[in-house]
Design a protein around this nucleic acid. Structure first.
Length: 289
DNA sequence: TCGCAGGTGGTCG
DNA sequence: CGACCACCTGCG
C-alpha cells in the first residue's frame, strides 16, 4: 500500500491529537497507530522517532507516516487537515508563560494539534456528542454513516462510509434514523440538516448557535473545530472540573470561566482548552489503573 | 438498580 | 434572565 512520510515533525503526537476530544472517527490500533476517515479518505497514521544524527542533539521530533496516502493527497488534504503549517512550539511557549497550570497541562498533551475538520462533519458530530459518552458517540457516527452515507473506497477489505450529507439527512425523518440509536438527538440532527439546506452552512458563532441542538458548548466546539476559530473555549464537564481543581472556580461558574479564558488565553483559548482537557482526562485515566 | 455520560430545549418564577 | 428538568441509550 502506498504511504507518505513527513520527516522532522515536531509538536506532534497521534495519541494527543486523536484522543483530545476533537474527533470521533479516528481509532487506535493495536500497534498504537490511528486509522481514520476524513475528507472522503481512509488512512492509517503513525509516528516514529527520528534517527539520532549522532551529534547528541536531543529532539522530540520524529517522522509521521501516513499509509494509503501519496504526496498529492498530503498536499491537497492532510497537510491542511493536520494543521502542519502552524508553529505549535511557539504557541506552547506563549501559553506556558501564562501560569504554572498551563505549563503542566502542556506537558501532558504536548503533541496536540487542532485538526481542520470539515464543518458539516463537526456540526453532526458535536450535536450527537451532547450528554453522551465517547464510545457511544463513535458508534452513533459509524451507524449513521453506514445507514445513510455514501460508500467510500474500501479500506483493508472493509467497507467505509462517509458521513451523510446535509441534503441526505434533510430528506429523512427522525424515525428513519432509529437504527443509529441517536435517541432524542435524531430530531435535532434532521432539523439542523434542513436548516443548513435552506440557509447554507453557518459562518460564525451566532449562526451556529441558531442550529437546533446547538447550545453554548456544542456551538463552541463547532466554531473551534469546524470554523477553526482558535479563540473559542468550549466549557464542558471536564473543563469545569479542571477549572475547579486547578484555578479554584466554582464548577457552576461557567460565565466566570469564559471571562477568565478570554482574558487570559485570548486568541489561543481553544488550544489552551485542549491542553487542559487532555490533562484532566489523562489524570483521571491514571487513577483508574 | 439507577446514575451517569463531553448538554439542550422548554418551562416557570 | 437564571434555575430546574426531562430526555434516548448503554454501561457499570
Amino acid at each position: 500500500m502506498k504511504e507518505y512520510v513527513i520527516e522532522n515533525v515536531k509538536d506532534f503526537n497521534p495519541e494527543h491529537i486523536f484522543e483530545c476530544g476533537q474527533c470521533f472517527r479516528w481509532n487506535r490500533q493495536e500497534d498504537g497507530s490511528y486509522t481514520g476517515t476524513a475528507m472522503g479518505k481512509t488512512v492509517n497514521l503513525r509516528m516514529e522517532p527520528e534517527e539520532k544524527s549522532g551529534c547528541g542533539k536531543r529532539s522530540d521530533a520524529g517522522r509521521v507516516i501516513i499509509e494509503n496516502a501519496d504526496e498529492a493527497d498530503y498536499e491537497s488534504i492532510w497537510r491542511d487537515y493536520l494543521d502542519m503549517d502552524r508553529d505549535y512550539g511557539a504557541i506552547k511557549e506563549a501559553l506556558a508563560e501564562k501560569d504554572e497550570v498551563m505549563k503542566t497541562a502542556i506537558e501532558s498533551g504536548s503533541g496536540i494539534r487542532i485538526l481542520k475538520q470539515d464543518l458539516w462533519e463537526t456540526i453532526v458530530s458535536f450535536i450527537i456528542s451532547q450528554n453522551n459518552n465517547i464510545p457511544r458517540i463513535k458508534g452513533c457516527i459509524e451507524n449513521l454513516s453506514a445507514l445513510a452515507g455514501e460508500r467510500l473506497e474500501d479500506y483493508k477489505g472493509e467497507a467505509v462510509y462517509a458521513l451523510p450529507s446535509a441534503e441526505k439527512l434533510a430528506s429523512m425523518e427522525p424515525e428513519d434514523l432509529a437504527p443509529v440509536r441517536l435517541g432524542y438527538r435524531a430530531p435535532y440532527l434532521v432539523k439542523t440538516a434542513r436548516m443548513v439546506v435552506d440557509e447554507g452552512l453557518p459562518k460564525n458563532y451566532e449562526e451556529v448557535s441558531a442550529l437546533y441542538g446547538a447550545g453554548p458548548k456544542v456551538t463552541s466546539c463547532i466554531t473551534l473545530f469546524g470554523l477553526h476559530d482558535l479563540s473559542s473555549f468550549p466549557i464542558d464537564v471536564w473543563v469545569r472540573r479542571v477549572m475547579n481543581e486547578m484555578y479554584g472556580f466554582d464548577e457552576k461558574d461557567v460565565k466566570g470561566m469564559a471571562a477568565f479564558a478570554e482574558e487570559k488565553f485570548g486568541r489561543l483559548g481553544g488550544i489552551a482548552q485542549q491542553y487542559l482537557f487532555y490533562y484532566i482526562r489523562s489524570k483521571k485515566g491514571e487513577k483508574k489503573q
